[in-house]
């Protein structure tokens, strides 16, 4: 094989690897929060309190982070195929930590009053602190 052919072959191989990598990255499924290492562990009360006290600071601490949140179940709601669990944040208060379970993570649902730990991605605060793509990791 001549030197020229070797260079062409190496170039073609590199192009093929680059195209394959690009194709893989483009089609890569969304990374589930359950597969990612937990960034922080926090109670529902503390998480809600920090967002209500200083939203901007809480955003920088928690948003886009994978959290393990422990709290008491205040409500379990099913809308279509989506299951959301509201963790209570304050006695008698309206707000809480609203956790939407990832598709397929809704096996055994907790009951109101149970203390559970949920792992998921924190996305910010609306009426409640929002956790999405969640899985229940400890259902006592």
């Amino acid at each position: 094989m001549t030197r020229r052919n070797t260079i062409i072959l190496a170039g073609a191989l590199l192009c093929l690897i680059a195209a394959g990598t690009g194709y893989y990255l483009y089609n890569k499924p969304r990374t589930s929060a359950s597969e990612v290492k937990t960034d922080k562990q926090v109670t529902a009360e503390k998480l809600y309190e920090e967002f209500t006290k200083n939203e901007q600071q809480a955003n920088s601490l928690y948003v886009n982070k994978v959290l393990e949140v422990t709290g008491t179940v205040a409500d379990v709601q099913t809308t279509g195929s989506a299951v959301s669990i509201l963790l209570s944040a304050q006695a008698g208060g309206m707000g809480g930590v609203n956790c939407t379970l990832a598709t397929g993570a809704d096996g055994k649902l907790p009951e109101v009053g149970h203390t559970i730990t949920i792992k998921g991605l924190c996305t910010g605060v609306l009426m409640d602190v929002s956790i999405v793509d969640a899985t229940i990791i400890n259902n006592k």
Binding site: P29, R30, T100, V132
Partner: peptide, 12 residues
């Protein structure tokens, strides 16, 4: 709604 709550099938 929170924009970050939109879930797409692909990460990119």
């Amino acid at each position: 709604l929170l924009q970050r709550n939109f879930m797409f099938p692909k990460q990119l």
